[in-house]
Design a protein around this nucleic acid. Structure first.
Length: 863
RNA sequence: GCCCGAAUGGCGGAACUGGUAGACGCGCCGGACUCAAAAUCCGGUGGUGGUGACACCGUGUGGGUUCGAUUCCCUCUUCGGGCACCA
């Protein structure tokens, strides 16, 4: 064994061994229990970032741990390869998105390999290749057949200068990101997937998914947003038998309705705007307004009367109809009944426009004042000023109102969802073509299965002015599959969330070019452990759950939930440094180019840019990002310290579900620890082979170190296997190593105990730092490869101890420590506790009122 | 605005089911080795008071439940994630 730890050599050797042995090629084996460990696949942006390293290190550590615990592990990798950045790169550099993407994939694949991840590369898949995306198209056609995919109009951001549709992120303050032109809203025909058909099931199943984080389930439940209430009608005289419908969960407040508000897109608004130029202008303003819910919710509430009146369904009173910019056309019927007294938004609206506010709910007799909104105004209570509903509580009132409305044919109970159907059409080049052909005679005709895939041409270079597919006659001009006449191919492509909604299924059979899925799906799926960023908690995971349900219903997979267990890891943060010039934009500096010094006495930190020796400002610790220039390239870390140090630091610096702060010193610490581990093994083996362990003749000291070694093994096994807290697992091994450093190597038994403890340390860390432990396992005298070894067994006998330490409190304050025999009874514990001199001092002469004993932990004496 | 999290020494974090707050690491201080430095090794390190044994204070704010609260409940503050065309 070499004295010096040289990561480059150690890591090359281990990686070569795994490669030659095909160690991570997964094979179906019905006799073995499988473990499908999947990390969210990356977008091939160019280089790996720290978030990737964190994600894949967590996955790899788990996969290796499960493998050593006897599971048949599958850990695949692929590329989420369609998307906007490739088009942006094309615009900037004139490179076709296909070439840019594939070059990035090649580079990132090398990086993943250099980090030593145990991935089965035979199953690699790339979503921008036809052998993958043809099945998007195939399944889309199945959805069309079942009515799950359908066409309707949708609103997009239109840049009038570039004549192109922009993504929300390309719209900055209402203007196009490249042109600066004011963005218009346009309604165009698009394809939608009817995820709302599964709303109920998607929501209900969350309750039987205990291995998903509570917060993710809560976020999804809120997103789906089930509301039970009443859809009620306000008759009006516009058109024949006209009724304005609105949904409410607070039918008990119906007698407090003083107005109705409709969305700008509502038919009543359109009707009223005819011949009303002011209203027309207001409606246009609303339609131009923000598209993002966050902006909609914070914008100032504005409205305008339509001049129309509807009839209150109970009282028969006329109710004015307003257009309100806070009413969403996409929720319910695009109209709300305005109850200013008991809804905060309605209250604000009524105050602003002088609409009457009528209290109809009494909450515990509290006095109601119209001067300012109080949070309790929207609480449940008893009806007042409500005619025959007076004194009824919430449920009784709702029931009575529902019955009355039903008898008048003006209302019914209704469940409404916040969830909307998934619009998948993108007016963009770099995506999966939607397999539709538009014929002047036959209309929208699905591409027949035998003509799939509709291949996306790869040589086009977008220039920012519209979808280049529109300018490609070879792609556009086709004949109609139905009538054979001249027709035009659909140029919209699919949302990239489609690609990621089923890739986890395809890993089971990525080599099948005849079918989307095959029998191997039944062996590997569902995914046992899915790992990815919390930022995907709603959209991606909900779409994947929906997609899997559709495939279940068509008989393609035997399960509804694709991910049995979910783990969401936190983001990677770093400090951000900048200078704000008097004029112009803020300048960001990479932390690698900044030196930080700390004044010992004042604790003041000063950050200086090395290039010019002048100070820069710190903007705190934020998510690593290109725009803030605070990213650290994982490659530089691997080159300088090796993959094991990178992996160890990532896993040690924070619990995996929390944010992780970058720290150069922390990396140094991880490197130092690996060197210490190496040295400990070196010093042990350079004394020659250790003899066998004789458990019956151990000294107390030897038994102590054995107990700690096996306690460490037990803790690591639990921390990785159950808690997923790699940071505390590593800390436990560090403690063991600290103890070993003080332990003698004198006798044969000393050395046997050390050998056992070192093996425990090496095996415990092997999921996290697989290269160095691969080498150390051999150094400790084993001929086998560590990756083929089983996880070590905990010797429960070694854990035994004859005494146990307990603490003694007086009135809840710590006053002493006692040592008690493991089998000591309560009387013995009590007597020992009361005999402690410091304890007696604090009891004084006072009588003991109560004595609480928590076995093995503490005694609390209450006086 | 709505939904979901988080807050503990100089710093990252630990304390798993209400039971010893600060494990482990970083940084810092002192020492050993060295001509010197780096590396390495040993010791110390929440605050205040005390020579000391020790005592008091201390987990974002204010309150509550309990023999006992970092942990449970309520309030507020700050920070982070998501909000449907970024992935």
């Amino acid at each position: 064994m070499q004295e010096r730890y040289e990561p480059a050599a150690v890591e090359a050797e281990a990686q070569q061994y795994w490669d030659h042995q095909h160690s991570f090629e997964a094979k179906e084996d019905d006799t073995r229990e499988k473990y499908y460990c999947l990390c969210m696949f990356p977008y091939p942006s160019g280089r790996l970032h720290m978030g990737h390293v964190r994600n894949y290190t967590i996955g790899d550590a788990l996969a290796r741990f499960m493998r050593m615990n006897g599971r048949n592990v599958l850990q695949p990798m692929g590329w989420d390869a369609f998307g906007l950045p490739a088009e942006n790169a094309a615009i900037a550099n004139g490179v076709p998105p296909a070439k840019w993407t594939l070059d990035n994939i090649a580079h990132m694949k090398r990086q993943l390999k250099s980090l030593g991840y145990g991935l089965d590369w035979n199953r690699e898949l790339t979503t921008c290749l036809p052998n993958y995306y043809r099945w998007n198209q195939w399944l889309f056609l199945r959805m069309l057949e079942k009515g799950i995919a359908y066409q309707k109009t949708g609103v997009v951001n239109w840049d009038p200068e570039d004549k192109t549709v922009l993504a929300n992120e390309q719209v900055i303050d209402g203007r196009g990101w490249r042109t600066g032109a004011l963005i218009e809203k346009r309604e165009i025909p698009m394809y939608y997937l009817k995820i709302t058909a599964y709303a109920e099931d998607l929501l209900e199943s969350l309750q039987s998914m205990p291995d998903w984080p509570e917060r993710v389930r809560a976020m999804q439940a809120n997103w789906i947003g089930r509301s039970e209430g009443i859809r009620l009608g306000f008759p009006h005289a516009i058109g024949e038998g006209g009724v304005l419908y609105a949904f409410t969960t607070r039918a008990d407040t119906i007698m407090g309705v003083t107005f109705c508000a409709v969305a700008a897109e509502h038919p009543l608004a359109t009707h009223a705007a005819r011949g009303n130029a002011k209203l027309q202008a207001f409606i246009e303003e609303c339609k131009r307004g923000p598209a993002l819910e966050a902006e909609l919710a914070t914008q100032e509430k504005k409205g305008m009367p339509t001049g129309l009146y509807v009839t209150h369904p109970i009282s028969g009173d006329p109710v004015p109809v307003w257009v309100g910019n806070y009413v969403l056309m996409s929720y319910g019927d695009g109209a709300v009944m305005g109850v200013p007294a008991h809804d905060e938004r309605d209250f604000e609206f009524a105050k602003k426009y002088g609409l009457p506010i009528q209290q109809v709910i009494d909450v515990e007799g509290r006095p109601y004042s119209m001067a300012a909104w109080q949070p309790w105004y929207s609480e449940h209570g008893r009806c007042v000023n409500s005619g025959r509903y007076d004194a009824l509580k919430y449920e009784a009132a709702v029931n009575a109102v529902a019955a009355d409305l039903r008898s008048k044919g003006m209302g019914e109970r209704r469940t409404t969802w916040r969830l909307r159907d998934w619009g998948i059409s993108r007016q963009r080049y770099w995506g999966c073509p939607i397999p539709i052909i538009h014929c002047k005679i036959c209309g929208a005709v699905p591409v027949p299965d035998e003509q799939l895939p509709v291949v996306l041409p790869t040589h086009l270079v977008p220039d920012g002015s519209g979808n280049p597919l529109l300018k490609d006659p070879d792609f556009i001009n086709v004949s109609c599959p139905k009538c054979g006449g001249e027709a035009r191919r659909e140029t919209d492509t699919m949302d990239t969330f489609v690609d990621s909604s089923w890739y986890f299924l395809r890993f089971a059979c990525a080599d099948n070019d005849q079918a989307m899925l095959d029998y191997r799906v039944q062996y590997w799926l569902p995914v046992d452990q899915y790992i990815g960023g919390i930022e995907h908690a709603i959209l991606h995971l909900l779409y994947a759950r929906f997609w899997t349900r559709f495939m279940h219903d068509m008989g393609a997979v035997p399960f509804k939930e694709p991910f049995a267990r979910l783990f969401t890891q936190g983001m990677v943060l770093n400090e951000v440094f900048f200078r704000k010039p008097e004029f112009g934009r803020v300048q960001y500096f990479n932390p690698a180019d900044v030196t930080i010094s700390t004044d010992k006495t004042t604790q003041r930190r000063a950050a200086v840019l090395r290039a010019d020796g002048k100070e820069v400002e710190s903007g705190g610790v934020v998510t690593m990002s290109k725009s803030k220039n605070n990213g650290v390239d994982p490659q530089s870390l691997v080159d300088e310290f090796g993959a094991d140090t990178a992996r160890l630091f990532m896993m040690f610096a924070a619990p995996p579900e929390q944010t992780l702060e970058w720290s150069d010193e922390g990396v140094q610490g991880a490197y130092r620890f690996i060197k210490r581990l190496w040295k400990a093994v070196y010093e042990h083996v350079s004394r020659g082979p250790a003899g066998g362990l004789d458990r019956s003749t151990l000294t107390e000291h030897q038994r102590g170190i054995r107990r700690q070694a096996h306690q460490t093994l037990a803790k690591v096994t639990d921390d990785i296997g159950r808690r997923r807290t790699f940071n505390t697992a590593i800390a436990a091994v560090m403690e063991l190593l600290n103890a070993l450093a003080k332990f003698p190597h004198a006798s044969v038994q000393d050395r046997a105990v050390v050998q056992e403890a070192l093996e425990i340390a090496v095996v415990s860390l092997s999921p996290i730092i697989p290269h160095v432990t691969h080498a150390l396992w051999r150094s400790l005298g084993h001929r086998t490869a560590l990756i083929e070894e089983a996880w070590l067994k905990i010797d429960t006998e070694a854990l035994q101890s004859s005494t146990v330490q307990m603490v003694v409190q007086v009135n809840g304050k710590l006053r002493g420590h006692i040592s008690i025999a493991v089998d000591g009874d309560e009387a013995a514990i009590r007597d020992t506790a009361l005999a402690d001199p410091n304890v007696r001092k604090f009891i004084g002469g006072a009588p003991v009122r109560k004595l609480i004993i928590v076995r093995g932990k503490l005694v609390n004496i209450v006086v």
